[in-house]
Design a protein around this nucleic acid. Structure first.
Lengths: 194, 194
DNA sequence: ACCTGAACACCGTTCAAGT
DNA sequence: ACCTGAACACCGTTCAAGT
């Protein structure tokens, strides 16, 4: 079920401005994080602040659009992982968690934005969070199908935990690969004890 | 080694103002979270903004002082837990994690402040973070002494993880007791498999 | 030695005026 | 229909003037 966003026709100049803002925002988010000044984004894009707000009512709306095909990437990744049978469940889970974490820390400050959106259907990022949750569920289900996952753990909690680890990486300021020990603990807590 | 803070003598009015600011800050942090307006705190305390900055150069300095005997409470808690032998290691660990989490979410926004301070010795909260880490180490060591903890997990990582879960609670906006499933996963990931 | 509060910089957000 | 940019509110931070 590919969901094509309903694009209402914009006037040519509006379409151009929208695009310029998105490019500027992506650059600014990359350089300064997702909490950067929106005034700055508007200046970079060469538009007035009002124009930015006209196109994107909130920072979350802007981030959501900047994310672009972020959801598709995660979904594809999940399908790849769910289909793999060359890896032992414990290795597959750990690699999946690392992949998930890297998706979530795409911008500094993105992880906390995701966390805040997770339980809030009004948040513009809610849909992306749900997609992340579904992707995670798919991988967990595939590993569970091989009898490797405890019955009493919920994919939702795993998703929260991994996003939480991403947030630790973000806040503490360590590298993504330094999250491995934490992800191993989560992995081992999810795995069925033999 | 009780560390008595070296208090340099303040003029009577300065001492009073300092105290008024601390009370106001504690109230404001409780009502609005640790990221509340410092201008508001100064107004509540009935002092000018300059007076607040004279006493507390940064928000973290203020939070550190507002925390008061927070460190002592955690340390005492850790000693109690480390001494308990009436509980199975798995139950003790889970309860300890819950206690730790409750300490960390004392104010909304406190958990992220802690995370940011964890690896930054320049941060005024660094000392409190270290104390939290040491307290956690003590409990982990006691459980490890009973042979219940994996050799390859480090107390530092556990501390980061639990603080991370606290941050998830804070950001997602769930209740502390709803963190139980996540803490169980962490607990099971830390426990030695029998 | 300490306090005050005006002043400045910066940011988010709105909206009247313009095309 | 859309854009501009001035205007407002708010917050953090500094500092000259005062006691």
């Amino acid at each position: 079920m590919t969901h094509v966003t309903e694009v209402k026709p914009l006037r040519a100049d509006a379409r151009r401005n929208r695009e310029k803002i998105l490019v500027a925002a992506r650059d600014a988010f990359t350089e300064q994080g997702a909490a950067c000044s929106l005034d700055d984004v508007a200046k970079r894009a060469g538009v007035g602040p009002g124009t930015l707000y006209r196109h994107f009512a909130t920072r979350e709306d802007l981030l959501q659009e900047v994310l672009g095909d972020w959801v598709e990437h995660i979904t594809l990744d999940a399908e790849r992982f769910a289909a793999r049978d060359d890896l032992a469940p414990e290795d597959l889970l750990l690699e999946w968690f690392e992949a998930l974490l890297r998706h979530v820390i795409i911008y500094q400050g993105a992880s906390v934005a995701m966390l805040k959106a997770m339980d809030d259907p009004e948040n513009p990022l809610y849909g992306s969070c749900r997609a992340l949750g579904l992707a995670n569920e798919q991988v967990i289900a595939s590993v569970a199908g091989r009898g490797a996952v405890r019955d009493d753990v919920d994919a939702l909690e795993i998703g929260r935990l991994v996003t939480g680890v991403a947030n630790v990486v973000d806040a503490v300021g360590i590298r993504a690969d330094e999250a491995r020990p934490m992800l191993r603990i989560v992995r081992d807590g999810v795995l069925r004890t033999r």
